[in-house]
């Protein structure tokens, strides 16, 4: 499948005011790496929420994995959500669960047998450099550490798309670079990655990453590349 995500003239209106997102049209190629930039309030989080099925658009067409995601019945959403890993801007770790249990959650939701949970969890903990913190509660971790737990939870289920909302917003530049390396390594394994950020310094850290820019709810696509993406990188 060449196009894993497709938006066509998508609009989103909260309540009755102006449209927060207007005429959004783009295509994400399977296996590619994208940055979504734009000023604060431009609509980055809103666009990501449409993509990870937390919100239905007011108009337009959204196709995910080749299927119409707008008219999809509610009962099919869980199956699609399991194919998308999300790193929320505010982490959304469950405070009374241990780090390990937080990371294990997608596997347990997917019904993976309990015997097959511990292995991947400790693998993920090691991958994000928190090998010895599995038993800790989220509140005892620094912002950067919580961010890495959120990333581990987002990717443990081997999603086809990884969506991250301002993942470097709360960390120092050194940690930001480390996090980007995690995303890059994941992308090299074939996962399509979409990272929203207003941190322009990050953009040239990932070679071959494509940039999407939102300006007050409209997607800037001067070259038209977002509508007709080039072939995936190898």
């Amino acid at each position: 499948m060449a196009n894993i995500v497709q938006f066509e003239n998508v609009g989103l209106r909260y309540g009755t005011g102006q449209e927060t997102l207007s005429d959004i049209s783009f295509t994400l190629a399977s296996g590619a790496f994208y940055f979504l930039t734009g000023a604060s309030g431009a609509g980055k989080t809103s666009l990501l929420r449409l993509l990870y099925l937390a919100q239905r658009p007011s108009r337009g067409i959204i196709r995910l994995f080749g299927e119409d995601a707008v008219t999809m019945p509610r009962s099919r959403l869980p199956g699609f959500r399991r194919r998308i890993g999300v790193v929320f801007q505010d982490f959304r770790l469950i405070p009374h669960l241990s780090i390990a249990d937080n990371i294990a959650l997608p596997l347990r939701v997917a019904g993976v047998p309990e015997a097959d949970v511990a292995g991947p969890v400790s693998e993920m903990l090691a991958w994000v450099g928190l090998g010895d913190r599995g038993g800790a509660r989220p509140a005892t971790l620094s912002g950067g550490e919580q961010q890495r737990v959120a990333i581990a939870r987002a990717v443990i289920g081997r999603p086809e798309i990884l969506v991250a909302d301002e993942p470097t917003g709360n960390v120092d530049p050194e940690m930001a670079e480390r996090l980007l390396l995690l995303f890059d390594s994941l992308n090299r394994l074939g996962t399509t990655v979409l990272v929203a950020t207003h941190d322009l310094h990050l953009l040239n850290r990932v070679s071959e990453a494509q940039m999407m820019r939102l300006d007050r709810g409209r997607l800037q696509d001067p070259t038209g590349l977002l509508r007709n993406p080039p072939a995936r990188r190898d």
């Binding site: 199956g79 959304r92 469950i94 997608p106 939701v109």
Partner: peptide, 16 residues
């Protein structure tokens, strides 16, 4: 509510 929202986004069904 917050936990439920996260569970939904991780693909949990209503029944779960």
């Amino acid at each position: 509510r917050a936990t439920i929202e996260v569970m939904h986004m991780l693909g949990a069904t209503d029944v779960q």
